[in-house]
Each structure stands twice: as C-alpha cells, then as structure tokens.
Amino acid sequence: REPLSASMLASALPHVQKQMIGDRLYPLIYALHSELAGKITGMLLEIDNSELLHMLESPESLNAKVEEALIMLQAHQAEEQTD
C-alpha cells in the first residue's frame, strides 16, 4: 500500500480521515500491543492528523506515543479500581 499523504486525506470527510489513519495505525500498534490495539488506536486518533501522519512515518514517535497511551490507560484503570 502507498503511504498515506496529506493530499489523500484532504479529499475525505473528517471522520473518514480518522478511519483512514486508523487503518494504517492499527496494524503498527497491534504489533506492539495486540490486546490493547483498538483502545490505543482510538486514543491516538484524537491527536491532530498532521502529527498522526508524522507518527506513521516515524516508528520512534509512534512508539513514544503508544507508551504514553499505555501509561495513561493504566493510571486510568488504577483510578477506577480505587474508587
């Protein structure tokens, strides 16, 4: 598949843009954390599209963001358990 470009996204509706990016992001995240891939992808999709496109090109950026999402998720789950 050709890489997703800003111009390809520009012709799509906003929610379709997120789906297009998510379709590229999900397999990368699945390779890192299969059991949480859907959740982490959903969290990352709230980031600006320009930054998401950069993350698709940059494994280091993506890994850093995935780690950040995991920490947030774990903190959130810990919080729910103490309530």
Binding site: R1, D23, A37, K39, G42, M43, K65, A69, M72
Partner: peptide, 21 residues
C-alpha cells in the same frame, strides 16, 4: 506542546483487517 491522551476515547474498529481493499 500539550498532548493529552484521553483514556475514555472510543475504541478503534479496524475495518481494513476484515475487509482488505
């Protein structure tokens, strides 16, 4: 730059996994 991830974000449903183009 603020980058706040929302743990309550909706889970992504990967349609391309079941329906490849």
């Amino acid at each position: 730059r603020k980058s706040t991830l929302n743990p309550n974000a909706k889970e992504f449903n990967p349609r391309s996994f079941s329906q490849p183009k």
